[in-house]
């Protein structure tokens, strides 16, 4: 009876996992800033076009290449105007949607396909494993940016095609990681025990293997997200990604290139948006690597206790 009471007390003491995570995030100010910034980008991507579409596309020829930091203007002109007098800040916010759509789509696709194939390769027959791994080798040996360039010249560049191309080039990363992890985890005692107790392959994969390898994959996905944002911007910059009148940050940098000598801000701000986003993702990935790793997590938790 006493034992049971003690037990409930301990359980009640342990904070809710979400609260615990937030507290760990609060402790690491860099990761916190990164998370906040990404949240802003995400909100811009979700609601920006609906709220600011009109403002962002309204041309104003008297305000062509309007310089930034003119605070007598409305807030969306604070970063200046582009070659047609459209407010840059509003356009950056609207462009977040396409940039994020491509990045999220590509990362989720490659994560899902790569992990599935990797687990099949790791958990089923040798034959399947061989075929899948050779497939990964073939994709890996393609120069990925070049492949994207070639395919996008051939296919009409749209958000969907861009997602497909980027996803294909990123699949091997998840495939190799999940296969390697599965090969290791499947030999552990709890998997063996589940197998002996008659669990089906599906149950073992989804209930026992996936939760163990997911943290690693999530960390890689965060890093990859930054990479995909960069590649997408580069493709748009080369003029083979998203086409006008749609906008992405990379396209905005490229459009501003013609006015470099007279209006540097046209290219500068969207580039800054890209770099801040990728920087935040990298910082967050670093934090996740520690936070999601049960062996490493104490570093953050102890810090929390010391603080509180």
């Amino acid at each position: 009876m006493e034992m049971a009471e003690q037990k409930t007390a301990i359980v009640a003491d342990a904070p809710h996992p979400v609260a615990q995570t937030l507290r760990m995030l609060w402790r690491d100010k860099f990761a916190l800033a990164a998370a906040v910034f990404l949240l802003i980008v995400l909100l811009s991507a979700l609601f920006g076009p609906a709220l600011l579409e009109g403002v962002a596309t309204k041309t104003n020829l008297r305000g062509r290449n309007a310089p930034p930091f003119d605070f007598s203007q409305p807030w969306y002109l604070w970063l200046g105007g582009d070659a047609l007098g459209r407010p840059l800040l509003a356009r950056i916010i609207v462009a977040a949607q396409n940039t994020m759509a491509v990045a999220v789509g590509a990362v989720l696709c490659s994560l899902a396909i790569g992990t599935t194939l990797g687990m099949i390769a790791g958990y089923t027959s040798r034959m399947a494993s061989q075929v899948i791994m050779r497939l990964a080798d073939v994709i890996m040996s393609f120069p990925s940016l070049l492949l994207a360039v070639i395919v996008l010249y051939m296919l009409p560049p749209s958000v969907f095609n861009l997602i497909i191309v980027l996803a294909i080039t990123r699949i091997p990363v998840y495939l190799r990681t999940s296969r390697a992890e599965v090969l290791e985890v499947r030999e552990r005692m709890f998997v063996q025990a589940a197998k002996v107790m008659g669990a089906s392959s599906g149950r073992i994969i989804f209930r026992h293997l996936l939760p163990v390898i997911l943290p690693t994959l999530v960390t890689i996905a965060t890093l990859d997200f930054a990479l995909v944002v960069l590649v997408e911007s580069a493709l748009s910059f080369l003029g083979i990604g998203i086409q006008p009148p749609e906008i992405t940050w990379g396209l905005m940098v490229s459009q501003g290139r013609a006015y470099l000598t007279t209006a540097w801000w046209l290219s500068f701000w969207p580039g800054l948006a890209i770099i801040l986003t990728t920087l935040s993702l990298n910082l967050l990935a670093n934090w996740l690597r520690t936070a999601l790793d049960p062996v490493q997590r104490w570093r953050l938790e102890i810090a929390v206790k010391k603080n509180g």
Binding site: L223, L230, G250, V253, S267, G271
Partner: peptide, 17 residues
């Protein structure tokens, strides 16, 4: 961190400016 985050085309343009 910079190496993993910097868009090369943007850095190139800013360098030219």
């Amino acid at each position: 961190l910079m190496g993993a985050s910097a868009p090369d085309f943007w850095i190139a343009i800013i360098a030219i400016v």
